[in-house]
């Protein structure tokens, strides 16, 4: 019944109401907490990691985890082929994954919002141009596209960010364009025009705040995706170069010893799994709270 919707408690903003819905979702809150723990781990890596992640010690080559025979509790997750502590490398590796995830999403979302607003509000040839570019970029398989770019530019942190953001922006752009097309027809946008507001004012001050919810939701979902892509590139040797620790390259390093030293690949793999899963579940909670239309 519409009755309930018409009687909101006083002094409640939409944002606060949405946040209340989100914090009421226990599973999503737990996952958000896990994501926060990963971020804390990345930021305070030098204090958390028990060892230097790049310190090699050939005496500890492929040393098993602490609870297995031949393991040591001070190297709880064991060591890799160069005797480096896997736990420390996972802690440092979180920096790369999360940094790339955040930067790519920030860059892509900013570009996507501007492009989507321009296409959706200005229409005409601007929309034509942007929509065509979006269609073309969507036509390429993502990973193959990124591999091609990386092969052209060579490996490196900023090259990865560029290669991923190059295509990632089309997703927020499409969302924003669609939302803008709906919002621009609403009377408050027309009211702003009737009052003499400029196009910039209308796009940034009237429309943008109202299309932001779905963008935030999409951005979190895509962040998980970008982290997997970065791991994939690093796994293929096109990502961050050694000796810098990255989860993807750690999984790749362990490939050769899968049978005798399963821990080298497994633990960084689990790190990817946990972080991506946590982000996905948390973002689903966000989606339910902020944008009920998106939930199936």
């Amino acid at each position: 019944m519409s009755l309930a919707a018409e009687t909101p408690a006083a002094s409640e903003t939409i944002l606060r109401r949405n946040l209340a819905t989100f914090t009421g979702n226990r599973l999503a809150m737990l996952c958000a907490l896990i994501v926060v723990l990963f971020v804390v781990m990345a930021v305070f890596a030098p204090w958390i990691a028990p060892h230097d992640p790049n310190e090699t010690d050939l005496f500890r080559r492929l040393q098993p985890p602490g609870w297995m025979a031949g393991g040591e509790w001070s190297y709880v997750l064991g060591c890799d082929a160069l005797g480096r502590d896997i736990l420390s490398r996972i802690v440092y590796g979180a920096r790369i994954s999360i940094f790339i995830g955040i930067v790519v999403i920030l860059v892509a979302t900013t570009i996507g919002i501007l492009a989507g607003l321009a296409a959706g509000y200005l229409r005409g040839w601007v929309d034509m141009l942007i929509s065509r570019i979006v269609d073309i970029l969507l036509g390429f398989p993502y990973l193959i596209f990124a591999i091609g770019l990386m092969a052209m530019m060579g490996p490196g942190l900023w090259n990865i960010i560029f290669a991923l953001a190059y295509k990632e922006w089309v997703i927020p752009a499409r969302v924003v364009r669609g939302e803008t097309l709906v919002t621009r027809e609403l009377e408050y946008v027309e009211a702003a025009r009737a009052l003499g507001a400029s196009r910039g004012h209308i796009m940034l001050r009237e429309i943008l705040p109202n299309v932001l919810s779905p963008v935030i939701v999409v951005a979190t979902i895509r962040m998980a995706h970008v982290i997997i892509l970065e791991a994939s590139l690093s796994f293929l040797g096109l990502g961050v170069q050694p000796p810098t620790a990255s989860w993807g390259s750690m999984v790749a390093d362990g490939r050769a010893f899968m049978l005798e030293a399963w821990w080298v690949s497994t633990f960084p793999g689990l790190a990817i799994l946990f972080l991506v899963l946590a982000i996905n579940v948390a973002s689903q909670g966000l989606r339910d709270a902020f944008d009920p239309r998106f939930s199936e």
Binding site: M1, L3, A4, T7, P8, A9
Partner: peptide, 12 residues
Amino acid sequence: VFETRAGRICAV
């Protein structure tokens, strides 16, 4: 009646 988060509404 409708039980809502804001309280109990006696619609009829």
